[in-house]
Structure formats: structure tokens, C-alpha cells
Amino acid sequence: MDLRSTLLVIGGSACSFKLLNTIIRSLPTPEPARQKAWRWRNISTSLAHSSLTGAWAVLCFYLEPKMVEDLISSHSIVSNSLVAVSSGYFIHDCLDLILNQSFKRSWEVLLHHSVVLSCFSLAVTSRRYLGFAVVSLLVEINSVFLHIRQLLLLSGKRNRPGTEITTPRPSVTYRMTSWLNLGTFLVFRVFTLGWMSRWLADHSDRITPRYFLLMGTAGLGLLSIMNTGLLYRLIRADILSNAHNTSRDH
């Protein structure tokens, strides 16, 4: 793909996710989520992106296994298109957040998107490090369960019916989603980001221009800090709080 085609894919992707967001507006929204209808639409759109790009990233390595061995120069139209489509989503989501949510509540997500977009833009314009960008999109496999968890919370389906007044008990669906979320978090966020950091360190002498290495190192460092905070919040909400509720019954 040349640069013009790549830019067209990015623009088309941003418009497509905006269209999807608009379609979701016309679909039925669970009653508990109606007071937060914008957030419901935003997370539903994010779930669509995660489902698409997570599966697409796996497909890229399946179709181009040599890309695993050469994350710098090896690429294909499939991997280039994936990074371009994902960039379009992040542009859409940035605009959606800026227009509908206060900066105080959205700054962390905007910072994440800015870091990712900066790295992805270098990859698609230079056609280098596309394999590395595809590896980073394996994180979206975990995001699928993270977003499903958020939708369950918004729709009021966290607890078993009838336990809200006494001692709240997580529903089977929420409990399964929670454990899948934590499990894939460790595999596709902690392990993947750790592997990427080690890869950067091992191949630092091959990464040119040098500001690519600087951006990659700074980006991974920032994302690792943000993911550590996210993991702590998930453990506190889904494990420690449940343990506390169980201890109260004995």
C-alpha cells in the first residue's frame, strides 16, 4: 500500500467506526445504561474494534509467519491495512472522547491513544516496524473481555438477581468474564508488553532512526505504568471486594 492508499484506509476506518457508533445509538439500550447512553455506545464501538483487530492480528502472523522473525522490515498488505484501520479507530475514539467527556475523566485514555497513534503513524508511513505494531495489537484480545465486563456493569448485570439488598454476589456471566479478563490481561498485556520491551532492548542497535527507539521505549514504559494501575483496579474490584463480601458471611 502506498501512502495515499494508507491515508484513505485510515480516513475510511474513522468514518466507519463513527457510522457504527451512530447505528448503535438507534439500537435498544438496557434500561440501567440509558443514563450513560454515550458511554454504552462508546464501549460497544470499542468492543467491535477489539474483536476485529485482535482476530486480525492473529491472522497476520498466521498468513505471514516470517513476520515473527523480522518485526522491522517484514510486512504485508494485510498487516499494513490492520494498523491503518486501527489508527482510524483511535482517531474516531479521540474525537468522541473530546466531544462527549470532560478532559479530567478522559485524559488517561487520550494519552494512551496519542502514544499509540504516534507509533502507528511512524509504522504506516515508513513501512517499517509494522510487525512490531501488529504484536502490540494482540493486546486487543484482552480488551474484548475488558469491554464486555464494562458493558455488564453498565447494564446492571454484575450481581445475581435478588442479592443486591443483602450481600451482592457476582452473576455467573460476570464472574466468568472477570476471570477471562484477568487471565487474558496477564497473557496479552503483561506478557506481550514485557516481550516487546525485551525485543526493543535486544534489537536496539538495529532500530533506526534513533528517535524510533526513543518513541518505542517511552511508549512502552508509559503503557506499562498505565496497565499496572488498571490491573490493580481490576484486582481490587473483582477479587478483593468479592473476598471481603465472602468473609462477611462467615
Rank of each mutant, 00 (worst) to 15 (best):
D96E: 02
L97Q: 00
N100G: 04
N100L: 00
S102T: 02
R105E: 03
R105K: 06
L110H: 02
H113C: 01
S114H: 00
L117H: 04
C119M: 15
C119I: 12
L122V: 06
L122E: 12
A123V: 07
A123D: 14
V124R: 06
R127W: 08
R127V: 10
R128G: 11
R128N: 13
Y129R: 14
L130E: 14
L130H: 14
F132M: 13
S136K: 10
E140N: 12
I141Y: 03
N142A: 10
N142R: 09
S143T: 13
V144G: 11
V144N: 09
F145N: 03
H147D: 15
I148F: 10
I148R: 06
I148M: 11
Q150A: 11
L151G: 03
G156D: 05
G156A: 07
G156Q: 04
R158S: 03
R158A: 10
R160I: 08
R160V: 09
G162E: 04
G162A: 05
I165R: 14
I165H: 11
I165M: 11
I165K: 13
T167E: 10
T167L: 08
S171Y: 08
Y174K: 12
Y174P: 08
M176N: 13
T177A: 12
T177V: 11
S178F: 14
S178Y: 11
N181P: 12
L182M: 15
L182A: 15
G183Y: 12
T184H: 09
L186W: 13
L186F: 09
V187T: 11
F188P: 08
R189G: 09
L193M: 09
M196H: 07
S197P: 10
W199M: 11
L200V: 09
L200H: 09
A201G: 03
S204L: 02
I207K: 07
R210N: 06
F212L: 04
L213C: 07
L214M: 13
L214N: 05
G216R: 01
T217I: 06
G219N: 01
L222I: 07
